Simulated scan of single mutants.
Amino acid sequence: MAKAPADPDFDLKSQRPSAGEVRRFATGEALFLAPLPLPTGHAPMDLGGSFLEVNDTYLDVGQSNFNKAFQAQLMIWGVMFILIVCLIVLPLVEMSMFFGDPHERSFMTHFMSMLEGLRFYSLIALLGGGFFSVLGATAVIRTTLQKARARPMRFNRQRREVCYFPSGSDEPIIQPWEELVAWVSISTGTTGEGIISTYTLGMALDNPKTDKTHFLNQGVLTPAHGLSKWEAIRVYMEKGPAFCPGKAPHEGRHTFDEERESMREAYREGDCSAIGVAWWYLRNIVTWWRFPYWVAEWDHRYSMKVMPASIEQWSQPVPPAQWAKPSSALLVQTVQIEKAFAKGQSFMDYFNSTLGEPASMQGERS
């Protein structure tokens, strides 16, 4: 049985971290990227499509409805498999047995046997199809409801502030951008047969009203992916929407139309065979054509919770003369690290970070 690595839960009150600092915890270590969010030198990327809104005033980072249509298709595949096997495949097998019956039973005898078998198969189809329908629909609805409980994290670049709603709460936490804590971490666990490592991009915000720190952790493929995701947020706040990835597309019935047109274009250019075209139509007919994409649209509409009036007001543009300015400390350190990047150093080189390196290599670096 696998023992999953735990997400880091740092003590951020007694000793505030700083960008470039490495801290160790029970199952691994973390490299801090903020407070005082410095450039990482990585290309900004919105991995996973979590940029729900990008404009000149704010950036919303949350969970899109990506793969919702596929989730609905999996549910339908389970139902249709049961129905096709019970109502088509097995009756055809029964029928084929009539022509090779070694006992030479009469047509009426065999016909009555087929009817009896069909009633049994229909009952199995009803129970099995119903089971998969309930199971699949429960999974689809549950994941949508979970997503709907949490509003996206909003980064206001004109005010240089961050707004976060704890899950299930309508009370926002607003924190200065330069005080937000962020890190990438490596956690190690065991499966009984080997060692596994997981990578996390984490953020933490302090709630002054409750004296509680809220931790947000998102799994990433590698520390480099975490750095690129954070850099996309950082470069939006420091330079604006023109320098970061745009708004992530959401799935809907338009996605179905785009996929069909892409398939047709591939066929016209010879990149898709007639068999491939036939398979595309067959699998979409079996999975109820546009229905999964309608489910994705419903998920998108339902889970996009409206912000309270106070945050809508907070999100309104302000005159450029009233925009908050970066601190002098951030400006000075940004110039210094960018000079290091120009000389070929990386973020980890600049801070002499040993994140994820074996102890032997850490000793060599030191």
Rank of each mutant, 00 (worst) to 15 (best):
residue 5 P to E: 05
residue 12 L to R: 02
residue 23 R to K: 03
residue 23 R to P: 02
residue 41 G to S: 04
residue 48 G to M: 10
residue 55 N to P: 02
residue 55 N to E: 06
residue 62 G to C: 11
residue 66 F to Y: 14
residue 69 A to F: 00
residue 74 L to E: 13
residue 79 V to I: 15
residue 88 I to M: 12
residue 94 E to T: 11
residue 98 F to M: 11
residue 101 D to I: 08
residue 104 E to Y: 09
residue 114 M to H: 02
residue 133 S to E: 06
residue 138 T to M: 13
residue 139 A to P: 00
residue 142 R to I: 04
residue 144 T to H: 10
residue 144 T to P: 03
residue 146 Q to V: 08
residue 153 M to F: 08
residue 155 F to L: 06
residue 157 R to S: 00
residue 163 C to W: 01
residue 167 S to Y: 10
residue 168 G to W: 04
residue 175 Q to G: 06
residue 183 W to M: 00
residue 185 S to K: 07
residue 187 S to R: 13
residue 187 S to Y: 07
residue 191 T to E: 04
residue 203 M to V: 09
residue 208 P to S: 03
residue 214 H to Y: 15
residue 239 K to E: 11
residue 249 P to K: 11
residue 255 T to G: 05
residue 256 F to C: 07
residue 259 E to Y: 08
residue 260 R to P: 05
residue 266 A to G: 02
residue 268 R to F: 12
residue 270 G to N: 01
residue 272 C to F: 11
residue 278 A to I: 07
residue 284 N to E: 02
residue 285 I to W: 13
residue 289 W to N: 09
residue 293 Y to L: 07
residue 299 D to N: 09
residue 305 K to R: 15
residue 311 I to K: 04
residue 325 K to L: 13
residue 325 K to V: 12
residue 330 L to S: 06
residue 331 L to R: 14
residue 339 K to R: 14
residue 342 A to F: 03
residue 358 P to Q: 02
residue 360 S to W: 07
residue 365 R to G: 08
